[in-house]
Amino acid sequence: MNEPQKRISDKALSVWRMTGAFSSVIVAIMAGGVISLSSIFSWPVWIPIAGIVVAILHVYLYVYLFPLLRWKRWRYEVREQEIELQQGIFVVKRTLVPMIRVQHVDTRQGPLLKKYGLATVDVSTAATVHEIPALPMEEAEELRLFISRLARVADEDV
């Protein structure tokens, strides 16, 4: 299959792993709560075990597996006439956004992305918003200018 060519920054992996780790900490705290509760009220032994399993599984999935699969899948390509995106972990989704439908382009950057020198590009049509996550800052900036220039050329009504 002829997929879109460009990948997003490999630093995206680290960003996603960080956010995954944050949520894992929360899950671990909840699991800890369940374990201590079950020792206080002497609940059946499978409950704390389940808590531990869930916590470990969460770390494996959200810190290791999902970010990796997600990064491997993420592709994009910006052509004269259209933007093509590919994403998804279990469901591969490919999206076409024609240039003449693009209304505006934004770049944005949270604290985590900033730390890694990354930015996210949002492409908005009259009805939908499409996100290209975690591009190197200069590349995001270039892309924004590039798309907005092409989109202006292709002006037409909704």
Binding site: G88, F90, V91, V92, K93, R94, T95, L96, V97, P98, I100, R101, T125, A126, A127, T128, H130, E156, V158
Partner: peptide
């Protein structure tokens, strides 16, 4: 020209059967 964007989706199970899903989005 009224379709704002088009999605092609293919899950693992669909892939096995050579099937896919299509979504076309329009402004309302």
């Amino acid at each position: 020209h009224n379709v704002q964007s088009l999605d092609y989706k293919e899950s693992i199970f669909q892939k096995r059967k050579n099937l896919a899903s299509m979504t076309s989005l329009i402004k309302s």
